[in-house]
Amino acid sequence: MSPWQLVFVGGVLAWSGGFKLFARTAPVAAASSALRTLVGQRHTVWVYRTVGAVELAVVASLPFTRMPAVVLSLAFIGYLAYGRLKAPTSSCGCSSAHRSPIGWRNFAFAGVLLAALFVPAVAVAGFVLGFALSPQFDRYWLIPLRQWKVRLTHPLASAQTDETPLHSTVQQLQRSDAYRKVGQLLRSDVVDSWDEGEWRMLRYTMRYQERTASAVFAVPRHADEPARVRLAVVDDTDDAILFTA
């Protein structure tokens, strides 16, 4: 094996084995990995640590033979396939506690690892490929790249309108005295809403003295002035105005 292969494969396995064996977050990674389904919750953590020890042993054997590493890579692909089929929501848990479901990137990474054992050029490319294919490194390049794209293209610009969102009116209503007076009696969420000049009207259903009534609030539409909120309670059967505030 060339030094490139030794450094790449050895580095990946040492990282991953060291993480499994010594990292503080290893039990967290183990719990979210497909191992939990494979060996059961009780045995997850010690099996996970053992796998880490095996990986470190394989690193030690690398200068002499590649066979243990080949077997380990094949077992890794088998583990990924098992996880993908039997525990699709679980993470790989391979070398970090980062949660992301097993997908094509994990398989590609395992493929690169296996190929690097036989082809020195793959090991050289592996330093870049391994970085790109590991979800735990996304925050160093993929997320900033996407943030940069959003800053350039403003994909959510058309969401901005001059209209006050209904939710904002409801928030203002809930801070008003009129609403606090009758809040206990309201039985429904917003039944209907419509705009009337500077006011936005909100209708709720209310139970008052064994009668079903509409509580209609007028809330300032373009200003945040909860003190100006007005209320009329109207009986639903005979349209009598029960009270106003």
Binding site: K181, V182, Q184, L185, D192, W194, E196, W199, M201, R203, Y208, Q209, S214, V216, F217, A218, R230, L231, A232, V233, V234, D239, A240, I241, L242, F243, T244, A245
Partner: peptide, 25 residues
């Protein structure tokens, strides 16, 4: 809607008032 808008905004006369005992029960 027109009727309810008028009830709130034109200050129509109410037949009763809010009974605090019931409102805060």
């Amino acid at each position: 809607r027109v009727f309810l808008t008028a009830a709130v905004l034109t200050g129509a006369t109410a037949v009763g008032s809010l009974d605090p005992a019931e409102a805060f029960a």
